[in-house]
């Protein structure tokens, strides 16, 4: 499962970041990296943009990137 499968407010552990470089590097720099805790905070009406909290940092990302982050409850 990935970020887009989470419900708002739900927490999970990041298993793998499947995005391509250089986006992967950017996600890592924002704290979206293996083993970190992630919580879904919000999404826009059409579920195109997502907001998550990883270890205290809030990050906004698009559908494509959110789908590339594998998580486990």
């Amino acid at each position: 499962m990935d970020i887009t499968d989470l419900k708002i407010g739900e927490e999970a552990i990041i298993k793998k970041v499947k995005a391509k470089e250089p986006i992967k590097g950017r996600l890592h720099a924002m704290g979206i990296a293996k083993g970190n805790k992630i919580r879904l905070l919000d999404h826009t009406l059409k579920k195109q943009t997502w907001e998550v909290d990883v270890e205290g940092t809030r990050v906004a990302l698009r559908d494509e990137e959110a789908k590339a982050v594998e998580v486990e409850r």
């Binding site: 950017r26 924002m30 943009t49 809030r58 990302l61 698009r62 494509e64």
Partner: peptide, 9 residues
């Protein structure tokens, strides 16, 4: 470009 952005408090 993909959209990945920090949302500052």
């Amino acid at each position: 470009e993909p959209f990945v952005m920090e949302m500052p408090p």
